[in-house]
């Protein structure tokens, strides 16, 4: 079906919907995952879904996020983050930083059954070189050490006016580990 005719509905009004899948990656004991064609020139708002991610080391966070700026990975402590931690055993914490080298769009998970991290993260303004790149996120997970259901919600920012053209996901706790498993899907929200 010719795209032009589809856009004006001449062939039955086909609208493919405005949540457009850009790329899905399935982790298999990877030291990191990289999304390098995020179509930041097309979408001002992205959605990154983490589905059943597990770290290779217990109680590590399998989806810490960094940005590539014009192809260069930003790994300095220049990100800011603020999140609310909620756990089913009644533990609630505020966790924030004005100088951190990643944005935590996930929370600790484990290697055992059901010990997965699941989250969504909206990413804003990545392709706009005149604006900072923001994230808002919400997670649900179980780890190995405590085992209770826990959740976080919050936001992060790379306060630099730059073009973000790639995403870098890695697993870490006190040390780095691998992303043992999980499905990571990046979408664009189109007008």
């Amino acid at each position: 079906m010719p795209v032009g005719q589809a856009k004006v509905g001449l062939l039955g009004g086909v609208d493919l919907g405005k949540l457009e899948l850009i790329e899905t990656q399935v982790a298999s004991n990877d030291s990191f995952l990289q999304f390098s064609d995020i179509k930041e020139d097309i979408y001002n708002v992205h959605l990154l879904i983490t589905d059943e991610a597990k770290p290779s080391t217990n109680d590590h966070i399998p989806n810490r996020l960094r940005f590539y700026e014009s192809g260069v990975l930003e790994s300095a402590s220049v990100y800011q983050s603020a999140l609310q931690f909620c756990r089913a055993d009644g533990t609630f914490l505020e966790i924030n930083s004005t100088a951190i080298n990643y944005i935590n769009i996930g929370i600790e998970a484990g290697t055992g059954t059901g010990q997965t991290c699941n989250s969504y993260a909206y990413l804003y303004n990545l392709g706009d070189s005149s604006k900072y790149s923001f994230a808002t996120f919400h997670t649900a997970a179980r780890d190995n050490g405590n085992g209770n259901l826990k959740s976080t919600f919050g936001s992060g920012v790379l306060p630099q006016t730059s073009t973000v053209d790639g995403l870098y996901l890695f697993s870490a706790g006190a040390t780095t580990s691998n992303i043992a498993s999980g499905t990571f899907s990046l979408y664009g929200i189109k007008e």
Binding site: Q80, A82, T98, T136, H138, F153, S155, G156, V157, P159
Partner: peptide, 13 residues
């Protein structure tokens, strides 16, 4: 849910 900068410097959700 929202994100922004406040006080010219700090991120806020």
């Amino acid at each position: 849910e929202a994100s922004n900068i406040y006080s010219s410097t700090y991120g806020v959700g």
